[in-house]
Nucleic acid binder design. Structure first.
Lengths: 264, 264
DNA sequence: TTTGCGTGTGAAAAACCCGTGAACGAGCGT
DNA sequence: ACGCTCGTTCACGGGTTTTTCACACGCAAA
């Protein structure tokens, strides 16, 4: 897990300067966005900060600490709340937790533990909200929705099958990057590609068909001869607009019949 | 109501009989379903228990406690994990929390606080669900009442059995989202799906029957071939009205963006 | 230009998935 | 014990997806 993935937007309400100093160091070095406050603030301000978590010393909020806690917990859904206070009784801790606090830490405490607990609270919250990692990814006119196993253009589904979708998803994960055939096969099919297997090509064709029929002005998948394929949305150069090749020219094509529908 | 709303399915892994005795009393009087274990169990067993939370004493699991913790946290999504252990260092606590524990309590501890912390851990995930569950949810003509384990159309009950209802509830919790067969099975049945098991299909059919007989103008459950099912109320196209008998009509995923989900 | 190999294409074959009806058995109240 | 409901399992059939094949075409090296 990277630094960024763990990054947290945090507000701290406390008056203990020694504690704040140490904590701030840690927050900075961890790259967390944070804001230090010395007193309670209205709930809507907290909402405006778009916080992931709030760390408060109940005693710093004043006599209405409990009320404040309850109000914030009730009115800022999705905010992780941790109380960090000196000397507390079991009854107080239970009360705080029941009022909506997600964790209760007793001072003195190690800043690293505080951060780990904040992470744990935020992690839990995110896990509840975000099902997997998937909100619509947009490339040109194409919208890829992992939660639907489907791609859309202008809100209309392309009708991709499972494999088709997996292939498209794989390619679109790294736009502009060429992926080798072998790697594609390995990742989508799950096992090594047999020699002479053309499955990838076939599925690329199906994908291109469905892409083109729904989004004719764009080319999404490019072939790299001898290597593999690359996803990279490119606006197609409309031939009818500039330097039109005479349409009649196409009819003069001699022998090769493009659609030899008859065989045998 | 409060009692019920707070009810939790909990498993405890510990060997401290004195602690267990006291805790069990509290659990019983609170009406929590619980199971006491004395050693680590495989993850899939934990899944099968459909727990909300797990309370473990790392030392009771043996030398592989950390590994166990990490494995459970990784493989049982949505399970709240609390560690309750005597004598721990900051480093240990941080490690445990980073490995996936949601809270870390030091013995000796008051059982009431333990329960409050368990509640806090379970709360967020559950609140989202319970909020949906508390108010009757309405989709098209269909009304889903979790408190009755039943669904209604025009005030009339569909006569769903327990499994049928659970399946419908699961699907309807995330309208518009495709849920994989495996995931359905895991969430409703509680254990991993055996290869070739058709239970899901059978129950989908029963659901569709009851849905259609009570609400014939709507289609609620859509099949995604090779993947799973999606709940998404759609007005059915009346065949008597007009229409060419469009043969290949399969994926009619509509344009409107039906994501009631939160934030980015 | 010619040649060789890799890719695009259409269609048929194979494999797979799902809807459906029905049989079986466990649990439960009568 | 009886009948009932509910959940599970099986087999069949139709439909969809995936694989395979044969051939045409295109690109690059000789």
């Amino acid at each position: 897990m990277t630094e960024q993935a763990r990054a947290v937007r945090l507000a701290v309400i406390d008056t203990d300067t020694a504690f704040l100093t140490v904590l701030q160091n840690r927050l900075d070095s961890a790259g967390w966005q944070h804001r230090l406050l010395t007193e309670g603030v209205p709930s809507d301000e907290l909402v405006a900060m778009k916080l992931n978590a709030l760390l408060i010393d109940i005693s710093a909020v004043g006599p209405n600490g409990w009320e404040f806690l309850e109000r914030v917990a009730g009115s800022v859904p999705g905010l992780g709340i941790l109380v960090c206070t000196a000397q507390s009784t079991v009854a107080q801790r239970v009360r705080g937790l029941r009022l909506g606090a997600d964790d209760w830490i007793s001072k003195p405490c190690h800043p690293e533990e505080v951060m780990a607990r904040i992470e744990a609270v935020v992690r839990r919250r995110k896990r509840a909200e975000v099902r997997l990692n998937a909100w619509p990814v947009l490339h040109a006119e194409l919208e890829i929705r992992s939660d639907q196993y489907q791609a859309f253009v202008g809100g209309q589904a392309l009708g991709l099958t499972r494999r088709e979708f997996e292939l498209l998803e794989l390619l679109a994960q790294v736009p502009g990057q060429v992926i080798e055939r072998e790697e594609i096969y390995q990742k989508v099919w799950g096992y090594a590609m047999a020699h002479g297997d053309r499955s990838v090509d076939v599925f690329i064709r199906k994908l291109r068909q469905k892409l083109q029929s729904h989004s004719p002005d764009w080319r999404y998948i490019h072939t790299h001869f001898g290597i593999g394929y690359r996803f990279d949305p490119e606006r197609v150069h409309d031939p009818a607009e500039s330097d039109a090749p005479a349409p009649g020219e196409q009819f003069t094509s001699p022998s090769p019949d493009l659609h030899p529908t008859v065989t045998t």
